[in-house]
Write a protein that binds this DNA or RNA. Sequence first.
DNA 1: ATAAAAACAGTAATCATTACTATTTTCAAA
DNA 2: TTTGAAAATAGTAATGATTACTGTTTTTAT
Lengths: 132, 132
Amino acid sequence: MTARKYSRQRELIKEFLMTRKDHPTADVIYQNVRNENPNISLGTVYRNLTLLSEDGEINRLNVGDGTDHFDADTSPHYHFVCTECGSVIDLEMDSIESINSAAAANFDGRIEGHRTYFYGTCRHCTRLHEHS
Amino acid sequence: MTARKYSRQRELIKEFLMTRKDHPTADVIYQNVRNENPNISLGTVYRNLTLLSEDGEINRLNVGDGTDHFDADTSPHYHFVCTECGSVIDLEMDSIESINSAAAANFDGRIEGHRTYFYGTCRHCTRLHEHS
DNA sequence: ATAAAAACAGTAATCATTACTATTTTCAAA
DNA sequence: TTTGAAAATAGTAATGATTACTGTTTTTAT
């Protein structure tokens, strides 16, 4: 519906996000894209992140830490969030779309999908606790 | 560790939340508790919601709409979020703790739990679309 | 009773995000 | 190739949820 026009800024944002697998926040993206375009504004970053996710080119993650994270990998996969350091890590596991039907069983409405985040302690933070 | 002292305000907040199954936000709780205590401040509501959830007496829900929701039902259960009206509804389905082990299979770290929200259109919004 | 810890009301501050505005860029059609 | 309307931009102001601060009041163990 909305005619999308080319923008170098949007391209830079997408390009940067594709190089990262740590699911950065808008501000981290902003700080990094500024290396390529020092004049870009934070509002432009936010607006383009929204446009890209509306277009399905990226995903917005609400991991529960108060700030959104972004992911250029739109293939179905799950995320782990470390409750100590806050890092967001891709999980290698099969999709569990079957839980949608489990949820729909006793529900009077239409269930279209789900979002699942796993929480715990990441490898690095676990090791920090080890007292050998 | 932190010695908790009685507070009438905290009691009112918990009591109100227990009467509701629609998972209200802090501001909705504030507006309602003011009927019982017109002097209560919004900061007190926020602080006590945090204390109550730290104590495991209530749960904080991050449904992805930008504002936290609260639930006095701490028994394990899942939630549905209507993408049209934003309502948050309890789901009657078995716990699927088994997905934790699926997530842990290829992950080098400790997975302690997960949070899952189901999205779609609620009964009410679905009916609004029906053109009979 | 008393006093230290906890909680309070009221308000200011913070943080992420969105909205606004005047200017610049894109791009399809002339 | 111009041209002009739509889209996008930079910069800044505003918003909304939440947290922090401060002087006062409550709680509660002694």
